[in-house]
Computed example of a mutant assay.
Amino acid sequence: MSNPTENSPVAQPDPIPAPTGIVVGIDGSDQSNCALVWAAREAKLRKLPLHLVTAYTVPIFAASGLDGGYATVDDDVIRQGAEAVLREAAAKVAHLEVEVDARVENGDAAGVLLEMSETAELLVFGSRGRGGFIGRLLGSVSSALPAHSKCPTVTVPLSCAARLGEAGPDTAPPREIEAVITVGVDGSDQARYAVLVAAEEAERAGVRLRIICAVQPYTGSLAWMPAPVDREALFAEIQTQLDAGEAWLRNHFPKLPIEVRLVEGSAVEVLVKASETSQLLVMGTRGRGGFAGMLLGSTTDGVRHHAKGPVMVVRDREDPRQDDRSAFGPLLQA
């Protein structure tokens, strides 16, 4: 076959459409397998396509010979290995009968996934990989994913293996999982949007919604305050706001079973404990120091790193359903 000339244009392959369903990062590790199974079940529940993605960069090693220079790893070899991992992943969830596509991307894993988050509905990944792309992704870089993703993200820890049917013979039996989705709140606008997303998720799954507000216990760390804290008055004020928020939420989700809990304790510890038996834990990315203190922001990272179940992190965005919140009672004033 003759080589193409300037007068005979070469047909270019059609670009791969941007993902519009649920994107899950795959590297073949046990952690990414847990994320895969969770994401596939969620895709089936939402009736959305599932996009399996792995990304890599070709490493370059300094040559040790006297001639200097660099040695590169064959790109084709790495790509073939990545494609094999994706084929195995697709076969693993084939029985769920969800629409699946798989793609290998050349580039920084975090950058690839963040770009896909612009069109995807959900971005899912494991908590820690085995040196594959998720291994890098969920190191220092992964902390930026929930904060910068354009869509909600879900972190699925390896401790979910038993509840997802991915546990080995030596794994402890799974804890009993309640038919509940839990969301942490602190009175901020960001938390209210997370509550709306959590309510949608609970309604879709046919389970109840549990709203938890954790108030930091009084310790010596509050000694700088100009006057003693009236704990009873503080709790009463927060409870009034929670009651108003519950009434507002029931107005938008009249058929959804809702329970609200106001507890004293570290937000990280309370929510990590809740993750053990909740189907999903939902949090916002960044609070404003609402009535429960710094629940969101650094607390979100603390919960994600220690959670025993899937954690969804929701970036703040405007939602018209928040416009009528003040009509139902007092709320936090910025």
Rank of each mutant, 00 (worst) to 15 (best):
E97W: 02
A144C: 07
V98Y: 02
L331I: 15
H95T: 11
I26H: 06
G25L: 00
V58M: 10
P4H: 09
I177Y: 14
M283P: 01
S29V: 03
E121P: 02
V100E: 01
A90Y: 06
P226E: 07
G139P: 03
R128F: 08
E97K: 12
A307E: 07
R231T: 12
R250T: 05
P49V: 02
L242P: 04
A71F: 15
E200F: 13
P17H: 12
G187V: 07
A274D: 02
L50N: 03
T54H: 10
I258L: 08
A191N: 03
G289N: 06
L86G: 10
A292D: 02
N7D: 13
V229R: 08
D108Y: 08
L271K: 05
P169I: 08
S32K: 12
P9H: 09
F235C: 04
A194V: 07
P13E: 07
Y56F: 15
G25S: 11
T277S: 15
D323I: 12
A39M: 07
G184P: 06
T299W: 13
R87I: 12
P157G: 03
V263E: 12
L295V: 15
G126N: 04
V73R: 04
G129S: 00
V303C: 02
A167N: 11
L45N: 09
A334D: 13
V282H: 01
P13C: 04
R304T: 05
